[in-house]
Amino acid sequence: MTAASDRAAENRRLLRKLGLVTLGAFAFCFSLVPLYRIACEQVFGIRLDGRPVDAATGQALVVDTSRSVRVQFDASIHNEREWRFGPEQVELTVHPGETVEAWYVASNLTADTLVGHAVPDVLPRPANPYFAKTECFCFTEQKFAPGETRRMPVRFFVSPDLPANVNTLTLTYTFYNNEQATRREQAAMAQAASAPDPDSRG
């Protein structure tokens, strides 16, 4: 019987160890969220576009006037009943190293306050690391009053290191309704409207 109870204790020890491995694997799954970002940005040079590039970096560059690159502007909308969204210019011709401004226009087609969020992409993909935005409406939440139409800027430069075989770039945005932010804003407005507010609307 001692051999059997030894074995039972051994089984329980192994159960605990393997249980820890399981918990480790579960934790590993969540660690993949930051690891993915690190792998994309540090290893593969894919800019996930959370932050602007420092404008000073662009100003410090020498503009290569001997070369011209076409930048095309494109837009798509996630829900056409809620938004109208598009570029003001179809394309611009820029010199590598030159910081340029372009404009997009968005309209809220509904009778509610909405918060939009634009997700950018640059094609062709290998050129993605050479396109830098110093300022962009895609970095922040875009709150729109009911029926509001607004112009939104993007400032960017194309790195002089852009491979010679690339002469056309496409900047494209998908415009989403940020549902969580929209809910938050609408709730805040509903609260403001219902709360007794002495200095509003005499």
Binding site: T22, A25, F26, F28, F30
Partner: peptide, 14 residues
């Protein structure tokens, strides 16, 4: 199984 089933569990939890 013990290496990857928890990963699926994590993914669907997210």
């Amino acid at each position: 199984l013990i290496a990857v089933m928890p990963v699926l569990a994590g993914a669907v939890t997210m």
